[in-house]
Design a binder for these strands. Sequence first.
DNA 1: GTCTATACTCGGATAGAC
DNA 2: GTCTATCCGAGTATAGAC
Lengths: 203, 203
Amino acid sequence: MKLADVNTEERILEAAKKVFMKYGLYGARMQDIADTAGINKALLHYYFRNKEKLFDHVFDGALSKYFQQMEVFSDKSLPLIERINRYIDQMIDFLTEYPQMSIFIIKEISTNPELFHDKVHKIKNHKSTSLIAVLKESIELKEIPDIDPVIFLMNLHSLCAYPFVASPIFKVIIEKSKTTWSDPNNEKHKQSVKEFVAFKLSN
Amino acid sequence: MKLADVNTEERILEAAKKVFMKYGLYGARMQDIADTAGINKALLHYYFRNKEKLFDHVFDGALSKYFQQMEVFSDKSLPLIERINRYIDQMIDFLTEYPQMSIFIIKEISTNPELFHDKVHKIKNHKSTSLIAVLKESIELKEIPDIDPVIFLMNLHSLCAYPFVASPIFKVIIEKSKTTWSDPNNEKHKQSVKEFVAFKLSN
DNA sequence: GTCTATACTCGGATAGAC
DNA sequence: GTCTATCCGAGTATAGAC
């Protein structure tokens, strides 16, 4: 989407997303956002009273998109493994499009945990069932081995998201070993996560 | 270590570590650091000319400690799997002691990638061999299956570090499913990573 | 709605006494 | 070495013209 094509409010939001994602709440400069949007500072305040409010818009959007990814888990028409595999595909595609999403959210939450709880409570009023619950059920029905659902969920998220989060570090580590590093090769990456899941959930 | 027990410079460094780790370079306030150290702002400038310099001390320390964890990979007296398992134990213990270490480093690197390269180049003059090289060798000798070393390394790091990085998010996700979440249970966590390694590296 | 010019505030940095 | 008081710039926010 070209910034110049759309109306001012959207342009601001796009610009703010870019700048806040890179520098965070404190590091971002209103001037920078204005420049990116091709307008001047005063107009930012006209549309969004102040920096915090503008930030909130961006952050809320990011957070709800992120949680949205987990809705697949609720789709009872699919077998468990299939749901998880779709989650993997979807999450990795999502993070490819917004590679700074995780780090942005984590960064802001960890500097400001209080704020976070309220926000999540609004979002999580979703109809989505959590993977943990689904796993527990499958374990009781002996459909999958008796694994620890929390650890499994943690591992799953780790494998999907961390490569994006840590890509700045990886670039250097990899460089050291003279291997070239392009951003995570999605297909290989997805495959390796799916293998892990298959390994853990097969009897 | 009680802050009051040691000399001023160390007290400042301890305090700065705490505050910078939580809020990052931009978010941290010199006043906050001074208060935490039990001194006043002027003294901070007396010891460390300015905020950037103080930050650099903290960041450099963090970075070198982090990379230090990877030195096990070079220990040729141990079989490969053993080296990796020790890395897992060590890294998870390390992150338990400094849970905000990864997120701190990643956060600062991602907002300021330029600065990072120089710093790492100083540190990486270490004698340590990279895991990638070691893996490649073992693959050629047919000691382990023909896996992709980069993906493997990425998965390994992900499984170790991400639970600490993302613990603020996990707390909420888990809460939703009414399971209680204490910070990652280390022994279980280690075990699950080791199982993954065993799975990947066994013929 | 959009701009320019300006006011206000916060927080990093310094001067200077002790 | 440590303090109090003060300065000054950067960056957010507002007034007011168009």
